[in-house]
Amino acid sequence: MFKQFTENISGHQAYLLFSLAIFLVFFIVVSIVLFRIRKPHVDHMSQLPLSDNQIDSTNS
């Protein structure tokens, strides 16, 4: 079935490959960023909606 889709856009494979490349590059960059984020920071951020009336004494 997939062959049918690619054949139907024949002559435009370059655009498919180009868009796939952009997607992959973007995805990889964001993934690297994500792996570099430290856990305490993630915990702090995800607690933000739940702590809007608590006073955070270490407000940095």
């Binding site: 993934s31 994500l34 995800s46 607690q47 909606p49 739940l50």
Partner: peptide, 19 residues
């Protein structure tokens, strides 16, 4: 914002939300 408030627990994955 509201779903964690309603369920009273943090979002499943903050990293996934950035992605």
């Amino acid at each position: 914002y509201f779903l964690p408030k309603m369920a009273n627990r943090p979002v499943y994955s903050y990293k996934l939300s950035i992605l």
